[in-house]
Design a binder for these strands. Structure first.
Lengths: 195, 195
DNA sequence: TTATATTGTTACCCATGAGTAACTTAAACT
DNA sequence: AGTTTAAGTTACTCATGGGTAACAATATAA
């Protein structure tokens, strides 16, 4: 195994440890010493892999960005009308957000001290939201999705889905498939009974 | 004006200033000096009104609890089937969450260092969620709401609604009534086009 | 095997910010 | 008026934790 690869693996492990700690105790209540301890090294070692504490969040965001955009690539590349693409996105997204690094990004996106980082984060988030909006618009054009304000609906959807990452555990008693079904049903037909 | 009343007013103003600051910069990036400055006093004065920094969050939570439970009292007291109560709750909740103190509570519920406070917060949150679940169950019984997993759906609804408090501004360009309409439509019939 | 880059360590510095002690001023009740 | 209580101030303490300098060990390459 190459040196660069080893380094990458260690960085990944550090991100994973950090993300888990951030999810459990929150960003500010987690010290770099805590993270270092989880990784069985001392604090200064971390600085060999990350620039500073905030850089951990940024690197988590990079991972998240790749995965979510990858999902969107996959979903939009598939044939199928807008509604079907939306369904596939939701399914895939719920899958993705059980990963600690993604969960960490979802929870801590927003708290960037560095201005440039804050802008980059915002931009990447807007990009993703935009792509989901595009799916809604596609669906409205092909008639599979009813007329609606795609901006508002996309945000509401994201908030609900992102919320899931805060409470849902894969190991928990709630069945993954049932969760997906409930979300899809809600998005498909709402909750009002049509008799 | 009575002394006790004046004190209460000042406490309220402090909470409001603190809540606004917490929303803008986040809890940990806001120092007590910042809050004191907003209120034109010095830090030690704050300790005359609150026990410590965390106590500010707790007092915000108290305010939020009263308002949200008040809304639920009002909604459930009204005649009308489950779905209508649900609609009224959503309408009222979107109204409520533009208030800085409530927004602050929504954003910072979850980060309680003190164990007792953390439990109390969780309990109050569960209480509210339970009452909303009851509305869903009522609706399923009277036939106004389709069969669904009320636990999951209630959480998804809350996440979407609470999310609104993070981005929606009363002064913004987005019309309040349109927001309410979009949310209600989503909850009522989803987004799939029924031809 | 020796030179060099890569990881890692110990031991610090230093800013920040929560919380307190001791004191002053202003208000309110008798 | 004079005494007491509320409200606020200045001037600290002190723990925490991000970040760094300087040094040590280990692996890679010549």
């Amino acid at each position: 195994m190459n040196r660069e690869e080893k380094r990458q693996l260690k960085l990944d492990a550090i991100l994973r440890h950090a993300a888990a700690a951030f999810m459990e105790k929150g960003y500010y209540k987690t010290s770099l010493d805590d993270i270092a301890r989880l990784h069985n090294v001392t604090k200064p070692t971390l600085y060999y892999y990350v620039k500073n504490k905030e850089d951990i969040l940024i690197k988590c965001e990079d991972v998240a960005s790749v995965r979510i955009n990858g999902l969107l690539d996959q979903v939009t590349a598939c044939a199928g009308n807008g509604f079907i693409q939306l369904e596939n996105f939701i399914r895939g997204y719920i899958e993705i957000i059980t990963d600690d690094i993604i969960r960490c990004h979802i929870r801590h996106r927003g708290q960037r001290e560095d201005k440039a980082a804050r802008n980059a984060s915002l931009k990447m988030h807007r990009g993703i939201e935009h792509r989901v909006r595009e799916i809604f618009i596609k669906g409205m054009n092909d008639g599979s999705i009813r007329d609606c304000n795609s901006t508002i609906i996309a945000i509401l959807l994201f908030d609900a889905l992102n919320g899931i990452s805060a409470w849902y555990r894969d190991e928990g008693e709630l069945n993954h498939e049932e969760l997906v079904q409930q979300v899809l049903l809600l998005v498909t037909e709402g909750v009002k009974n049509k008799v």
